[in-house]
Design a protein around this nucleic acid. Structure first.
Lengths: 216, 216
DNA sequence: GCAGTAGTAGTGGTTTACCACTGATTTTGC
DNA sequence: GCAAAATCAGTGGTAAACCACTACTACTGC
């Protein structure tokens, strides 16, 4: 299969899921003018190759590393490189963060081969490319401030996490209030909010779900 | 490449990330005796195929659907099917939940092709297979959390276990009394005894310790 | 037959959690 | 610098949990 450009586009992959790397390589294999020149699972492994690739496909969730930060670092050290974020994260906050940090494209991992190739071509040509579903997500977000989106793991605030831990450690609301130098009613308010966020009806469900979601 | 078994193992994939599906298909492509017969992104899409596959590779985070629940549903409706969880979630709570819901294997998505094949073979042969890193995670967890649990696992009576389950399922004492056709005070008595046996001071500690001791 | 355990049930409390509101102040994100 | 989120705090009430007792019955094992 032949692409418009005559020059071969050198693509690098940084993703800690080997299955994903394999999937991308297979998808791009049929295209003569795109070549996967390196695939790495960590920042250290990809660094030596950065100077020899045109486009980097970058995941956000890289085990202990943060793809959002890496995007900025790579763009700072290698300004000529184009970065397409390829991730499972559909939250608008991540899309915005990546674009703010210099990403040239954003695709969800349910991308089709066609769209992946389109994205690579567009970004290589200097355009910005967002996947169809990415655009949909952005539009949906701007229309209705959909806070919950598809957050599978509820996100608690710093204070809520603090109080949740104390609840699980068997402290009563009054004890927590004294410990944190806040009033009883404040603790009760937080407690209600935690319950709601965790989809629980009472203390039992709250603790159960907290452990289930790995928040404890 | 030839596997031990003569019969072709029919594999199905349920994952909402097409790249992942593609990666698995590629990885399994080289093996004659394993065949990916279907790949779906939603529960509805996979349902018609369940009767014709031996092993299902199942993700946990499926957009709006919950893989943990689906595992139980599939096992209930198709008891002969083997399920291997293939996911990014490394939390022990998810591993336990999947195994409790009947999963036969658990792998993280950074699995190698070799290990994926090993897992499929083992599970097809009736064994349970957990990935190396999955095992490491479980060991790490048990070292961190279960210091005393080896020494002392509280023994609850049949009735106490019954009531504990209902408490964890967010039922109030009154609701439990009605459900079991016993009086409120009986439930309260049992509840006090459970608390004492689990070394807990209140509902939060009771649920926490019940899960810690593996009673939930 | 008797001790031990499990299950049941009661009285009469006190303490805590749950809940629906409202609203102020501070911090954070664009 | 504005808007949103987070944090803090209150009223006033109901529901539920917590607690210390006692005590009957049925079953189990020696």
């Amino acid at each position: 299969m032949k692409l418009q450009s005559d020059k071969t586009i050198r693509v690098g992959i940084l993703d800690d899921h080997r299955i994903v790397i394999q999937g991308i390589q297979t998808a791009l294999n049929d295209f003569d003018n795109v070549s996967v020149v390196c695939a790495a699972e960590t920042k250290e492994d990809i660094l030596p190759y950065l100077e020899n690739i045109d486009i980097l496909l970058l995941d956000i969730n890289l085990g202990h590393e943060d793809g959002v930060m890496l995007c900025k670092q790579f763009k700072d050290s290698h300004s000529e490189i184009k970065i397409i974020c390829l991730t499972s994260f559909t939250q608008v906050s991540f899309i915005k963060a990546m674009l703010r940090n210099g990403a040239d494209g954003y695709l969800f991992k349910n991308v089709t081969t066609d769209e992946l190739i389109n994205a690579i071509q567009a970004v290589y040509a200097g355009e910005r490319y967002l996947g169809n579903e990415v655009n949909e997500e952005l539009i949906k977000y701007s229309l209705e401030h959909n806070r919950q989106s598809h957050a599978f793991i509820p996100k608690l605030t710093r204070r809520e996490n603090e109080i949740l831990s104390l609840i699980i450690d068997e402290f009563t609301n009054q004890e927590i209030a004294s410990k944190l130098f806040i009033s009883l009613s404040t603790v009760e308010t937080h407690r209600m909010n935690i319950c709601a966020k965790l989809g629980a009806k009472n203390t039992a469900g709250m603790v159960r779900n907290a452990i289930k979601f790995g928040l404890a």
